[in-house]
């Protein structure tokens, strides 16, 4: 499963979201993965856990940093990517494919509209840095 970056929605905290009806996949952007460096560990929630928009749902660790991963929209966790426990480096290697982090059920689709488009995210990146 490869998500096309051009078709995704983005947060200011560098998560991407790929929506299919009320379910969606969430991962970290290639920019975020690059900034973190080699990801060596990830802490993830349990399926069925619920989170508010912008709430931290887990942490991503490189050798010398820990970053929170934030929920793009209010949602319930459906699946977590079990393979990341064994190989968190997948996020670096394939952030839009096998490096996806969670699958969620979106509570309020309207929240998705407030996320950035691919173009907006590119502009955001160039403005931020």
């Amino acid at each position: 499963m490869i998500h096309q970056p051009e078709n995704l929605k983005y947060t200011r905290e560098h998560e991407w979201l790929s929506m299919d009806g009320l379910t969606a996949y969430v991962g970290l952007t290639s920019y975020a993965a690059e900034q973190l460096g080699d990801i060596v560990h990830i802490d993830l929630p349990q399926p069925q856990d619920e989170f508010a928009k912008e709430e931290s749902f887990g942490t991503v660790e490189s050798v010398k940093s820990v970053s929170d991963a934030y929920m793009p929209v209010t949602a319930k966790i459906l699946l977590i990517n079990d393979k990341l426990a064994e190989n968190p480096g997948m996020i670096n290697e394939d952030p839009y494919g096998d490096g996806w982090i969670i699958q969620i059920e979106i509570k309020d689709p309207a929240e998705v509209e407030n996320l950035m488009s691919f173009e907006q995210y590119q502009t955001y990146l160039s403005e931020e840095h």
């Binding site: 560990h41 490189s62 050798v63 010398k64 820990v66």
Partner: peptide
């Protein structure tokens, strides 16, 4: 395993 420690994770 320094990410457990205060200089990185601070209050956590």
């Amino acid at each position: 395993f320094a990410t457990r420690e205060q200089h990185i994770r601070r209050e956590k």
